[in-house]
Design a protein around this nucleic acid. Structure first.
Lengths: 251, 251
DNA sequence: TCTTGCATTTGGTCCTACCATTGTAGGCAT
DNA sequence: ATGCCTACAATGGTAGGACCAAATGCAAGA
């Protein structure tokens, strides 16, 4: 039941030591690690081990590496993107039925709306409304930019999440949006959908600004009704894609 | 406005190529990559670059490396733990007020309860109830095992998530529980809390098994009332810890 | 004072040799 | 023929050295 103390994991070992030092606060964001050649002698290993260590920690998002004099490995503050990337990678291997995603997002949206009305200040609420109006206008143009508008849609979601004054909602929304970026562009190509969705965003923002919770929730509900309709239409049009998706989902 | 085509990122480059091959399905879980020395010549680089590449992909959870003959880098199917680990790491650097965590979990719990009643089969519902009863019994012992019981509490949560038939809830719950493991043990040390919490779990499971949504939601609500009380008590007892926490949260 | 250019620091790459682990094939003994 | 053991080969793990490339700073020169 004993296991070898070090079964070829020198780089993992060093990585753990450095990670621990960062988490303990012995190393703070912005600080620099010694140069590779220095650590090489400090840890008593070859330089290769140190380099592999650095790659690991860099991949974890804990380090940022710069070349040249005054270069080296700098401690980096983690940000949400690391989680988002992990999630996105995971989702590529584990496709989720659109309905499941909608179910999840609707839950979050309803709560965030509630929290936003309670906690956000008036400035933010009006800013949300302003952006929603901007989205509506953007789509009224002759040749709407789908990428820009679905980007703005994302922005609105993030704003709402931030207004909820609960970072967890913000982080999860962020990660979810990054993970599912591919599907969303397509929706904004549907003329009928995008205009009603934008109008609905405006209504939602208005209700939030006026503090009318139930009305806001009603609009949120309508938003997801629209989404479900739009997806159902797309699915019935292209059976092939649907079959593909189901197949992928099976494995 | 031009940027150098390869600013010292050979290993990242190779990693991207392999990652793409995995995502395209050109490489499937279980398959083996060529040996380091072979790839070295295939990619036209030194062996160090290949090794760094492998470390990166291993850290991402895409590879598993074995030594010896028939060893090498094997493609691995991603699992939720990678996300959980990213989140846990992130949360260590970004502490969250307990109230915010409760707010978030309560939202998920309420929806999951609703979905579980609608989608789970009777077998599962009874199994949930059985485990809840087991938790209650476990705490009635003379010397309850805090770690085991808070582990069982986690299990109950995961079961509920699975019963919702929506993998997103399952994954997020999993990640959240991994990320916040440290706080939760402590709660189960409070005698008054843990017994009422367990009894409440039983009631909740019972209501779910009987398909009584509103009653179940009522119990869920009570669960979080208990949690909030428990945390408030702890906070008022140890002002020092609380001050520490706020300080950490500021930075 | 500004520019140029050299020197230094530091990561990026290649190479080569050797060690450690593991699976297997072949030989040896029963 | 069977079963055990050993030697070998494949493969990742480590060490150390040499050189390249980029970034910075300083010094010399215009």
């Amino acid at each position: 039941m004993f296991f070898p103390v070090q079964a070829g994991r020198a780089s993992e070992d060093v990585a753990l030591q450095i990670e621990a030092a960062i988490m303990d606060g012995r190393l703070s964001p912005g600080e620099r690690l010694p140069s590779e050649r220095e650590m090489q002698s400090q840890f008593g290993t070859g330089r290769g081990v140190i380099r592999e260590t650095i790659k690991i920690l860099k991949q974890k998002g804990l380090l940022e590496v710069k070349k040249g004099a005054k270069g080296g490995a700098y401690i980096r503050r983690l940000d949400v993107n690391n989680i988002s990337e992990s999630l996105a990678l995971f989702l590529k291997q584990h496709p989720v039925e659109p309905e499941k995603l909608i179910e999840f997002r609707e839950t979050l949206d309803r709560t965030m709306t509630q929290l936003a009305i309670a906690h956000a200040d008036q400035t933010e609420k009006e800013s949300l409304l302003k952006e929603a109006i901007r989205l509506e206008e953007m789509l009224r143009e002759n040749e709407p930019d789908f990428i820009a508008s679905s980007e703005l849609d994302r922005q609105l979601n993030i704003m709402l999440a931030r207004m909820a004054r609960n970072p967890l909602f913000e982080w999860v929304m962020h990660a979810i949006q990054m993970g599912f970026n591919s599907h969303d562009y397509a929706l904004y190509e549907d003329t009928a959908y995008r205009e009603r969705a934008a109008a609905n965003w405006k209504n939602t923002a208005q209700a939030i600004a006026q503090g009318e919770l139930m009305r806001a929730l009603g609009f949120i509900g309508y938003h997801y009704v629209l989404l479900r309709q739009c997806i159902a239409e797309k699915a019935s049009l292209t059976n092939e894609t649907d079959a593909d998706f189901l197949q992928k989902d099976e494995q």
